[in-house]
Every structure is written in structure tokens, then in C-alpha cells.
Design a protein around this nucleic acid. Structure first.
Length: 558
RNA sequence: GAGGGCGUAGCUCAGUCGGUAGAGCAACGGACUUUUAAUCCGUAGGUCCUGGGUUCGAGUCCCAGCGCUCUCACCA
């Protein structure tokens, strides 16, 4: 052990926390009792949520053999179970025998009696640990419990006099010692930085966090199920790209040593999925991580999860139906609540979602005639945008982004985009000025983006070139993907393509206002241990730990 | 990348006008066999993010840096 116990005249050296010292002391005592403080396999336990559901099996057994059910008002403040029992006559509460395991989140010690609140990921329940009931040895063990310890219990489910559903312990087990104190017991972790850096504590102790991430899992499972049921094939494309294509974003650069080759982390899934369309995968999708070397904000994390779907012989309308199906199924998977609270307001996901044209929305929200370029320019100028020399559709799109997008509470499909602002999209056959594209907006956020994909290799190559020519210096790392053009030259079926930002969808479906609430480990600057060993609460905790390890390892190795 | 806010005990937070660093929880010692944020008595716990500066004196004022956060920009 590297820790020293506090002594009367100890020098003002930085010492390990008092909490850790006392916890290590208890750890040693548990080991001395012949109990492995790090536990082991523990079969046949019942999740605490299920145990709570067994409350109706608890009964009051009178001496004459009659078994009375517990009144339903048990646990309510104005109901005394003690009085009720006295009225019924002599007897005892009998309930099912159960085995539970979990973390100690609350403890109340009253002499020869200890109450413990035990929590697992299904719920929380109180344990009654009486010296007489569990015996000397187990009671000594219970006295060594700290908040945060992982323990197990065998006992009988019943009620205390105050009507609290309780496991009356008969046998205790020890599974792991918590050497660090948990967060404050009724405020939890509030510091946003600590919540992200110590996500394990945030998950366990902050209300709703674990539940939100389990919802994320259910949403992702549901999306896969929807696609799989429609015959889509899930694939895993490469994340290391020689050419970062498929989107306009700055990539992360990495390096392969053996090949002495700079590579890019992928910024999109698109180009490889389309190669698979050429290869005959007629319905294909990938649900995976992409990486963009851009700013960080409540809506942006450098790595995030995208879904991209392609269907041969489909178009953007096919993808619109699919998008709605994906969302509806996800909501069903979360329990079918179509009205989801979002800040002060509520999002109504009841299908069908509204479908409105770009121009209609422009007229409605920006109060401008979209067919009148002069009027549109006037509005753009009033927003501080200089329309001179710009393509009329670019000016129009500026007004759309400024005036319309934020007001699209949705869910709403925006259709009929001007073709000139989406160069990589097929145009309408009867109106080449309009692109076959939709975007799904919810609460001003772009959630989905879909196209009728371009499969003309010559046109694609030409558009690539004009796009590359217009890029600023720092994005010139983008390159022409000749192999992708070659793939198209072999014939890609006409197809509908769809992209959905999974993190943002999860935000909306779980009411999270920041993307960092739906990403388990969002990117943070690394903690920097200070030379003095102490610093902010976060760094001192991590830093001290590392120092201890090094000190422990040095003597044996030298 | 630009601007604003924040950083005090393990955690949650006070700290007045610049004048010896505070509380609750957690910890340690003691009392208590039906408690519910248990209660009661006692004890210990601090590089006030870091580094400069102003001042007789800085947690407090000024400058720089670090971290987080909000708004904006880029972007999905």
C-alpha cells in the first residue's frame, strides 16, 4: 500500500485522500476475515426491478394459519403497517426468498442494525441487516461497507414497520470494494466536466443517464431491425481512406507505418456503399462512425454515428418512406410515445410527417417570392449577405438557412431543392432546375438528407472537378476519387440514397439538448497532471492515481 | 477560430467592501434493532486551477495561461 494513515504530527505532504486510506483499511480487514474482497461469479440473482415486482407475494401469516395480503396502501405516509399488524393479531410477515447484487448507494446505521440501499441497473431496494438476523460475522462485514461497494445478499422480501419494501438479509456477500468515495449522495455529479470525464460515475449516479444510453441502444437496434426486415444488407466499409470523399468536411489525417502512407479517417460512408451498388448489393447500409475535423459544439462531436442507406432502383421518395418508417419504428421501440418533450415544447412524431417544398417554406417563413431573384437578394442583403456576383440559388439558400431552417419545428420533409445547390443529385426529368432531394428537419436540426443518386460517371466526374476547383487551400487535401468514377463507369443502378445523423436523432428522441449527452465518451482534452500533483479536482484524482501506480511499480522493477 | 461565464475540501455549494478559509454530504471516534437525505455528541480534512502583477495585506482586483461551458463561425 502506498497510502499512509493520518498521524498526529504528519508533515504537510500531499497525501492520498483520507477516504481512500480508510477504505483500504477496510479492504484489508475484509481480506483478514477470509473473504475475497473482489468477489467472483454469483449465480441465480434476481434483478432488483424484478424483486420489487414480487411485492405482492409478501403476506402476513397469523398464528392460526391464515395468510392476509398486505393492504395496497402500504408505504403511504399516513398508513402504519405496524398498527395494521397489531389490529390483525399476532403473526409475521412472510415473503419470497431472493438473491440480489448491486452497489451500495445509501447507508443508515443504528447500533446493531444497518439499513442499506442497494442499486442495480433495474432498480433500487432497501436491505435490513440486523446483527441477530445475519450473525456476528456477517454483521462485522456489514460494518466495513462503504458507499459505492458492490455487495450481494440472500434474504427474504418483506416490509419494515414503516412500509418500505425490504430484503431482510440472511447472508451477505462481498463483490468489490470501492476505494474512492462516490459523488455527493443527493446531488450527484453536477459539474459538466466531471460528468463527462468520470462517465462511469455519471452513468451510475446521475438520474436518467444510464436510461438515456440504453434508449440509444434500443433506437440503434430498432433501426437495424427496420432495415434488415426490408431486406437491406449491413456492411462494414473501411474507416481508413486514401481519399476522404463523400462529403464536404475536413478529415483527420493518420499514417500507416509499413506502407509509409498518409491516410484519412472517413468523413462519410457514401462512396464505398455506392461501389457496393455497382457490385450488386441492391439494398445496402452501414451504421457507423465517421470523423470530421471540425469545430465542437452542443451539436457537433468530432466522431459521430451516421447511417447511410442505398436502394437500387429506388429514388428520394423511396427514401422518404423509409425514413418515416425508421423513425416510427424507433419510437415504438421506446414505448410508442409520439409526443416527445423538447425543452419548453413538444415534438409530435405522429406520421405522416409534413412534406413541403423549399419554395413554399421560403415564401411562408421569409415572406419573399422565391421566383423573384431581386426580392430574394433584397432580403439576403438585409441579413448582411452580399448577393452581388453569386448564383441566385446560392442567395436563395442563404435566406433559407437564415430564415427558414430554425423555424422548421417539424418533423418536416423539405423537398424540391434548387438543383444548383445540390450538384451531386439527380435532377427532375421534367424540371432540371429542381433536384430530387429531401432533408428532414426537426426542431431546426437537419436529421436526414436523401437524394436520387447520380449514376452518370461523366457528369459525376465533371461535378467533382468543379467542386474541387472551388475549394479553399486548406481543403485541397480533397482529391478526385478516380476509382469511384471507374466504378460508376461499370454501371451503377439508379438508386435512392439516405443519410441519418444517429446522434442527433437520439438527442431528439431522448430530449437531450447536447450531443454530449448521447455520446458515452465525447472528445475532451486530456487531463494534464500538474507537476505539484494537485490541481483541479478532476486532474488531481486522475493524476494521483497514476503517481501511485508508478510508485508501486518502481521498487520491484529496479 | 472569436466573444461571454465559470474553476474554493472527495462531492454539492457559500464566501459581503481586499483584512486569519466556511456549510451540507462523505470520512474518522462514540450512542442507538424498523431507519428513509436517519438522528445526536465529538474529530479530522484546503497549492481557493496555474503563473505573474497591484497592495502593508489577494479566494476576492489586474494580466497571461490551462480546463470546462454558453453564444457565434465551420459542419451533420
Amino acid at each position: 500500500m502506498t497510502t499512509t494513515f493520518p498521524m498526529s504530527a504528519s508533515p504537510p505532504k500531499p497525501r492520498p485522500g483520507l477516504h481512500e486510506a480508510s477504505r483500504r483499511e477496510k479492504l484489508a480487514k475484509i481480506a483478514e476475515m477470509g473473504i475475497d474482497p473482489w468477489g467472483g461469479r454469483f449465480d441465480d440473482r434476481t434483478p432488483i426491478g424484478d424483486i420489487r415486482a414480487m411485492a405482492n407475494q409478501v403476506a402476513y401469516h397469523l398464528e392460526d394459519g391464515t395468510k392476509l395480503p398486505i393492504p395496497p396502501e402500504v408505504g403511504q405516509p399516513d398508513f402504519s403497517l405496524k398498527e395494521w399488524k397489531a389490529q390483525q393479531g399476532q403473526g409475521e410477515l412472510v415473503g419470497p426468498r431472493v438473491r440480489a447484487a448491486g452497489r451500495i448507494v445509501l447507508q443508515r446505521r443504528t447500533g446493531k442494525l444497518i439499513f442499506v440501499n442497494l442499486r442495480d441497473w433495474t432498480g433500487e431496494i432497501q436491505l435490513f441487516i440486523g446483527k441477530k438476523q445475519v450473525g456476528e460475522s456477517d454483521f462485522e462485514l456489514a460494518k466495513l461497507f462503504d458507499l459505492g461497494d458492490l455487495i450481494g445478499v440472500d434474504g427474504m422480501l418483506a416490509y419494515t414497520n414503516t412500509g418500505e419494501l425490504t430484503i431482510f438479509a440472511e447472508k451477505l456477500h462481498f463483490h468489490a470494494k470501492s476505494l474512492q468515495p462516490p459523488p455527493e449522495k443527493h446531488h450527484g455529479l453536477h459539474d459538466a466536466e466531471l460528468r463527462q470525464r468520470l462517465r462511469y460515475l455519471d452513468l451510475f449516479y446521475t438520474e436518467g443517464v444510464l436510461e438515456r444510453f440504453r434508449k440509444r441502444t434500443r433506437i440503434v437496434q430498432s433501426i437495424r431491425r427496420t432495415l434488415d426486415n426490408q431486406g437491406y444488407c449491413e456492411v462494414e466499409g473501411p474507416t481508413l481512406h486514401a481519399i476522404a470523399g463523400g462529403a464536404a468536411a475536413r478529415p483527420f489525417i493518420t499514417h500507416h507505418n509499413a506502407l509509409d502512407l498518409d491516410l484519412y479517417m472517413r468523413i462519410a460512408l457514401e462512396l464505398h456503399l455506392k461501389r457496393l451498388l455497382v457490385g450488386g448489393m441492391e439494398r445496402v447500409y452501414e451504421l457507423g462512425r465517421v470523423y470530421r475535423n471540425e469545430g465542437i459544439s452542443p451539436r457537433h462531436n468530432p466522431e459521430f454515428t451516421m447511417l447511410e442507406v442505398y436502394q437500387a432502383y429506388g429514388d428520394y421518395r423511396t427514401m422518404m418512406e423509409l425514413t418515416e418508417q425508421i423513425l416510427v419504428d424507433a419510437i415504438e421501440a421506446l414505448g410508442g410515445q409520439y409526443q416527445i418533450p423538447w425543452g419548453e415544447s413538444t415534438i409530435d412524431f405522429t406520421p405522416p410527417f409534413a412534406r413541403r417544398t423549399y419554395d413554399e417554406l421560403l415564401a411562408e417563413h421569409a415572406q419573399v417570392d422565391p421566383s423573384d431573384p431581386v426580392a430574394v437578394s433584397t432580403v439576403a442583403r438585409s441579413l448582411g449577405f452580399e448577393p452581388e456576383g453569386k448564383h441566385p440559388d446560392v442567395v436563395k439558400n442563404f435566406v433559407f438557412e437564415e430564415h427558414v431552417e430554425d423555424r422548421l419545428k417539424g418533423p418536416i420533409f423539405v423537398i424540391d431543392y434548387p438543383a444548383s445547390i445540390c450538384p451531386l443529385t439527380r435532377r427532375k426529368r421534367d424540371n432540371p432546375a429542381i433536384a430530387e432531394r429531401f432533408e428532414l428537419f426537426i426542431e431546426g436540426m437537419e436529421i436526414a438528407n436523401a437524394y436520387t443518386e447520380l449514376n452518370d460517371p461523366d457528369l459525376q466526374e465533371e461535378l467533382f472537378r468543379t467542386q474541387l476547383a472551388g475549394l479553399p487551400e486548406e481543403e485541397s487535401m480533397a482529391k478526385m476519387d478516380h476509382d469511384f468514377i471507374r466504378a460508376l463507369q461499370h454501371g451503377m443502378p439508379p438508386a435512392g440514397g439516405l443519410g441519418i445523423g444517429i446522434d442527433r436523432l437520439v438527442m431528439l428522441l431522448t430530449g437531450a439538448r447536447s450531443i454530449r449527452e448521447v455520446i458515452l465518451f465525447p472528445l475532451l482534452r486530456p487531463e494534464t497532471p500538474r507537476p505539484g500533483g494537485s490541481g483541479t479536482s478532476a486532474t488531481s484524482e486522475g493524476g494521483a492515481e497514476r503517481v501511485d501506480v508508478q510508485e508501486e511499480q518502481k521498487p520491484p522493477s529496479s
